[in-house]
Simulated assay, not measured.
Amino acid sequence: MPKPDIDEIDRKILAALQADAHMTTEKLSEIVGLSPSPCARRVRMLEAAGVIKAYVAVVDQVKVGLPISVFASIKLERQREEELDRFASAVMRWPEIVECYLMTGQRDYLLRIVVKDLEAYETFLKQKLTRLEGVASIESSFALGQIKNAQALPIPT
């Protein structure tokens, strides 16, 4: 799919919706300087183009009982397409993994895993991650605190 042309008004729409996706079309149109109909049309076009992928509620992981974030670096035995696809498929099935990146460098994947406690991580590790065929090594690092978690992208205006 070709990259959509995003103009200054689209950028304002995106920035405003990243700050508050729950705002009304009327409020959004005031912010970006359009009347409600053209503003709504632009939002629908951004959605159709896949620029706006979804609308979600950002949930506080501590308040829902998942205070532990673990970053796991994964090295596969081989980096053939079959092994990469198998790993990616497994990651998609496991809700504990909230982020997964295919990496360059010494490790093949970087995962962010959220759990309620160390015992839950140990269970996840033993019953899921270490049982996955093709995993050569796993290095886990535990976050002591979160300094920044920006949900919004820095859209240039």
Results as ranks from 00 to 15, higher is better:
L17A: 00
E81Q: 09
A90K: 10
T123V: 11
L14Y: 07
Q18W: 05
F71Y: 14
T25E: 02
R112P: 03
G145C: 09
L153T: 14
R86A: 15
D20K: 07
A143F: 03
N149I: 02
D108N: 11
T104W: 13
S137Q: 03
T123S: 09
R112E: 14
I155M: 10
S69H: 05
S89M: 06
E77N: 12
T24L: 07
C100R: 04
I147L: 11
R107H: 09
C39M: 12
S29A: 15
E139R: 06
L66I: 03
A88Q: 09
D5I: 04
V59C: 10
Y55P: 02
D117T: 03
L46C: 03
V51F: 05
N149A: 14
G145I: 11
I6A: 04
L34Y: 01
I138F: 02
R112V: 15
R44K: 15
I52D: 01
Q151D: 03
I68C: 05
P38I: 15
A21D: 01
A57W: 05
R44V: 12
D85I: 10
D20A: 09
Q151C: 13
Y55T: 11
F71Q: 08
A120E: 05
L76M: 11
P95D: 03
K63G: 02
A54Q: 05
K148T: 14
S37F: 11
L102S: 15
V32K: 03
A19W: 02
Y121T: 01
E77S: 11
L14F: 08
K27F: 06
R44A: 14
L110C: 12
K148A: 12
L132P: 00
E119F: 13
T130C: 07
G50T: 12
E82N: 07
D117Q: 11
F87H: 05
Q146G: 14
I97G: 04
L110W: 01
L118S: 09
R44I: 08
M92H: 14
A136P: 00
L76P: 08
A143I: 14
S73V: 04
R11N: 09
G50S: 11
L144C: 09
P2E: 04
S140G: 03
E81L: 09
E81F: 00
P38R: 12
G33M: 03
V70M: 11
A16S: 10
S137P: 00
L129P: 01
K116F: 00
M1F: 02
A21W: 06
R131E: 14
Q18E: 11
V51P: 00
E99S: 09
E122I: 06
I68M: 12
S35M: 14
M23E: 00
Q61W: 07
K12R: 14
I155P: 04
E77F: 07
Q127W: 00
S141W: 04
A57V: 13
E133D: 10
K27Y: 06
D20L: 03
T25C: 05
V32Q: 02
S73A: 14
G33Q: 06
G33C: 09
I31L: 09
Y109G: 00
R78H: 13
R41N: 13
V59I: 15
V43C: 07
K3V: 05
Y109L: 07
I31G: 02
A40N: 06
A40P: 00
L118D: 06
R80H: 15
L46Q: 02
S89K: 05
E139V: 08
L28Q: 04
L46D: 01
F142S: 01
S89P: 00
G134C: 12
L144S: 07
Y55M: 04
R78L: 08
V56L: 13
